[in-house]
Computed example of a mutant assay.
Amino acid sequence: MRESRLKLTAGFTTLLIISVMFIVPFVWLLRSSVMDLSQIFIMPPQWIPKPFHFENFKEAMTVVPFGAFFKNTLIIVAGVLIGTVVSSTIAAFGFSRIKWKGRDMVFAILMSAMMLPGAVTLIPSFLGWKELGFYDTFYPLILPSYFGGGIFNIFLLRQFYMSIPQDFDEAAVVDGATYFQIYWRILLPLSRSAVIVVALFTFLGSWNDFMGPLIYLKSDSRFTLALGLQMFQGSYNAQWDLLMAASTAVVLPCVLVFLIGQRFFLEGITLTGLKG
Rank of each mutant, 00 (worst) to 15 (best):
F160H: 10
V197Y: 02
P140M: 09
K99F: 14
G268K: 05
F152M: 10
L29Q: 07
A172G: 05
L127F: 15
T9V: 14
I75F: 08
G205K: 01
I182T: 10
S193K: 10
F69C: 14
E59Y: 03
L127N: 15
F203I: 14
G234C: 06
I40W: 01
L30W: 08
R158D: 11
S191Q: 02
T178E: 12
L188T: 00
A249N: 03
V34E: 07
M162R: 04
D169F: 15
P213H: 01
D36Y: 09
G67T: 13
Y139R: 07
V197R: 00
F57K: 00
V106C: 01
R192P: 07
Q166I: 08
N72S: 02
L157G: 01
D175T: 03
V197F: 06
F12N: 15
L242K: 07
V85P: 02
T137N: 09
I215H: 02
G234W: 05
L217N: 00
R97S: 10
D209V: 12
Q159W: 13
V80D: 00
N56M: 05
S163Q: 00
K71L: 15
V173Y: 12
V251A: 06
T270S: 14
A68D: 15
P124N: 12
G276R: 00
A91M: 05
D104S: 02
W28D: 14
F134V: 02
Y183S: 13
P140N: 08
S163L: 08
G83S: 01
V24W: 12
W240T: 14
R31L: 04
V24T: 11
I90R: 02
M111K: 03
E3A: 07
S87Q: 00
M162C: 07
G150F: 11
L37P: 11
G133C: 10
S19P: 15
G234A: 03
Q239N: 15
V80R: 12
F126P: 12
Q230V: 14
L8Q: 08
E267F: 07
F54I: 12
A172R: 02
Y139T: 10
N153H: 08
W184V: 08
L256Y: 08
L188G: 01
I76T: 05
I23C: 10
E170S: 05
A78G: 08
E170P: 00
L190W: 09
Y146A: 03
W28V: 10
D220C: 07
Q46Y: 09
W207F: 08
A10R: 04
K275A: 13
A245Y: 01
E267N: 06
I17T: 09
S19I: 09
I151G: 04
Y146F: 15
L6K: 09
L225Q: 01
F210W: 10
Q230T: 15
I151M: 10
F138W: 13
Q262I: 11
S32I: 06
G79K: 10
V77F: 04
